[in-house]
Design a protein around this nucleic acid. Structure first.
Lengths: 175, 175
DNA sequence: TTTCGCATGTAAACAGTTACATGATTAC
DNA sequence: GTAATCATGTAACTGTTTACATGCGAAA
């Protein structure tokens, strides 16, 4: 899924500026699905406009730079439908945290404990945020909640056991 | 976490060839953490060797191309430790599937049903594979299992409800 | 006989992030 | 006064994927 399709999806829900699209990927229930940056959004919007999949109207604002609002066209809706109809690519997940945990036996247990606690706090914080602002797509929103909940619960349930095991192994080495 | 560090991590568990490192990211419990391709692994191994973080010994094989086995050096272990000690970058997740589900209201319900069923089958298949080959890191392995399990369970539990809701909305449009 | 697994590597194409460039307003 | 929010955009850098290049052995 390229950034053009991502932008097309967001503006299919309502006209938006590049800035607002970025926000959608941070707050509006798209945050746990995809990430993007201005550096990919703005060029994508320009390309979309050139291809006739969106139209841009500059909104003059007092005391602010003009806000460029992009509206999806019929051709854009049809392009979005085509993109969504293609078999979805495999999920791409990459976690420095889990990779680090995989090699936790190389690290001081108190450092590992800190990482675990930070991660648990991160999940809890995210869950609170997600629970507060209910999303336009309850199914996807619910899936995000379920997965984050299970991750947080798992970490909390196995934290101590894991740390004990690491210390145990370290003691054996020290002996 | 760059590919060099990923390779360093894998060979810290035992000398390996590029081919075997790739396999580790497909099968050996690293599959749900990170992905890589030969195109990034082989250059990374060359760089690691140049930097003295790994040494390469060519193993002549009968009727096969030479197998280049990479062994981590002391400098390599120390570099790995440094990399693992840095604060981990945020997880990067991108899901075409969830993005598509977010816009499921634009698609024919039977197509959505197919995607859901395929995804459930994918999770179940992966879970079976992961349950069969127990991993060297039980904590990380267990977390993968827990998260996949909750995702599969969520999809199974909400599949029908979601589809009913989509058909309902479509009927309203048709009326 | 065709596909899968073993085995390494390069180069071009593609995509994405980060840093840079600019600057006012508002809330703490 | 300092940080955050609003607001757009480019360019360089970094990284990844894909296609190409090669080729045998074993199993289905």
């Amino acid at each position: 899924m390229d950034t053009k399709t991502l932008c097309l999806g967001v503006i299919s829900l309502g006209a938006a500026s590049g800035y607002e699209i970025k926000k959608a990927f941070e707050e509006d229930g798209l945050n746990h699905i995809y990430h993007t940056s201005y550096g990919s959004i703005y060029p994508a919007l320009t390309a979309l406009t050139k291809e006739g999949l969106a139209v841009c109207s500059a909104m003059a604002q007092e005391k602010r730079p003009d806000k460029k609002v992009y509206t999806i066209t019929e051709a854009g809706r049809s392009a979005l439908l085509t993109a969504l109809s293609a078999p979805p690519a495999e999920d791409k997940f990459r976690s420095d945290f889990l990779f680090t945990m995989f090699f936790a036996h190389l690290l001081p247990p108190n450092h590992v404990a800190k990482l675990l606690d930070e991660r648990i706090a991160w999940y809890e914080g995210n869950l609170a945020k997600m629970e507060s602002n209910r999303d336009c797509n309850a199914f996807v929103h619910g899936m995000g909640l379920a997965v984050y909940r299970s991750a947080a619960d798992y970490l909390k349930a196995h934290r101590q056991e894991f740390l004990d095991q690491l210390s145990g192994a370290n003691q054996l080495v020290a002996e």
